[in-house]
Computed example of a mutant assay.
Amino acid sequence: MEESPALYFTFGIIADIQYADIANGFNYTKTRMRYYRNSLALLKGAIGGWAEERRKPEFILQLGDLIDGFNARDKRSEISLQKVLTEIEKLDVQFHHVWGNHEFYNFSRKFLLGSKLNTKPLADMMDDLTVSSPSSDCHEDSFYGYHFSPFNKFRFLLIDTYDLSAIGRGKPSVKYEISLKLLKEKNPNEDLNSPTGLKEPQYVQFNGGVSGDQLTWINRVLTSSDEKQEKVIVVGHLPIHPEATDTICLAWNYQEILSLLQSHSCVLAYLAGHDHDGGYCADIFGIHHVTFKGVIETPPESQAYGTMYVYEDKMVLKGQGHVLDRTLHYRETRTQTAQ
């Protein structure tokens, strides 16, 4: 990638590593192979690739599902997490971690808030925030979200798409009770991870949603960015546009989240993981929805990560292996469909 005077900054992106020290196995629907041990080797490859880039990324977005839920079954959650974090820490670049369903298969929210997967404190180090991030205390109904500005007029907003969820919380959480009731109303199946017969197939237990209090906070952040004429990239584990993913992978209340983002002119893109096949669309408002392919289902001979190059008028994604190259023109100056 040739450098240019207009290149503002770069950042890396990787999704759904799902490391576990177990043999390869199939996915939930028995249609795709998962390479549990090799995912660590692919992470090492990504770390090495970013380290060798002529312009090292300013930061890395890790889009969730860092280790697989099988670690909880084998009582290896903390061991596997440390093994992955040891590799991450070899790169002298800060990671920003999103939480996905596999984080909650392995850990409680209280544990995550006290762990290195809680990167919310970095927001205070990188930016003088006008709109504060939510409290990071350990009460059962808090949500994990924050925002930061790595470059003038650019902001990244990390949201918690498992704020409403039947995993990761328990009694006496009000949100847990509300979430479980909603899930059972929408999904009458005995197996709550099954979408069989559902009119809204996203209502499965391995997905989640965004609560009203978090939507209010997101609206405040984006309103502030509109006023300051910032460009905002929103980041979450679950996709929110049905044309950028299989519908079974959408956030529960994706329409509500999508409508909110579309109501703010500052939003340029929404980056997600979860759907290991990946996906892309530009919506009717020109927001780019990029769903990143999962490392866990990437064969050993390939790769699945990318580096985004941010310019005055566009972002250019340089993908590795299964991650495709894309040019994402900003809404104000966008003259053609992203390639």
Rank of each mutant, 00 (worst) to 15 (best):
G286L: 13
F285A: 07
D16R: 03
E53N: 11
A23V: 08
K228T: 12
W50M: 07
A6G: 04
H97W: 13
S225K: 01
I178H: 04
V98Q: 05
F11D: 04
A304F: 06
I167N: 07
G319N: 11
S132K: 13
V290T: 06
K231T: 11
D275Q: 06
K75P: 10
G49H: 06
G168F: 01
N219K: 12
L164K: 00
Q339G: 11
R334N: 06
S263D: 15
R155S: 05
R73P: 04
A272E: 06
H276W: 02
H96Y: 14
D325F: 04
N106T: 03
G69Q: 11
A72W: 11
I178Y: 06
Q205L: 12
I257Q: 03
G69N: 08
P5H: 07
L42G: 04
M1R: 15
V316P: 11
A166H: 01
L42S: 10
G100L: 03
K181V: 09
L183C: 09
M308E: 00
P188K: 02
V131M: 10
Y309Q: 09
Y254Q: 08
L328I: 02
P188L: 02
P239S: 14
Y8W: 11
E2M: 12
G64V: 06
D65V: 06
S224D: 15
K293L: 06
Q205Y: 10
F154D: 11
I22W: 06
E332T: 02
A46G: 01
G49N: 12
F104I: 05
G279E: 09
V232Q: 00
S263Q: 10
L238D: 01
T335K: 08
K56Q: 10
K44F: 00
D160Y: 13
G64N: 07
V84I: 15
H329N: 14
K44W: 00
T223K: 08
K75W: 12
P201Y: 14
H322L: 14
G279M: 14
L113R: 15
E140N: 00
F104K: 03
V295N: 02
P5E: 13
T307E: 12
G209S: 07
D160V: 09
A72R: 12
R37H: 11
N27I: 07
Q202A: 07
L7A: 08
H276F: 08
I47Q: 04
A244S: 14
G69F: 15
G168A: 09
Y330T: 09
C249K: 05
M315G: 00
G145A: 06
Y309F: 14
L261W: 00
D246N: 15
Q202T: 11
H102E: 03
Y309E: 10
K199E: 15
P57H: 05
K181M: 07
E332R: 02
L112H: 03
L317F: 10
L215Q: 09
L192G: 04
E297L: 04
V310Y: 13
Y19F: 15
V174W: 01
A41V: 14
K44Q: 09
V93H: 05
L192P: 02
C249H: 07
P195G: 08
P300H: 05
R37V: 14
G209T: 02
N71E: 14
N187L: 13
G100F: 03
F143I: 01
S173Y: 01
I284Q: 08
G273D: 07
L91V: 10
L258H: 07
N152T: 14
W252I: 06
V290P: 05
E52R: 15
S224T: 08
Q214F: 10
A166N: 04
R76K: 15
W252C: 03
G208C: 02
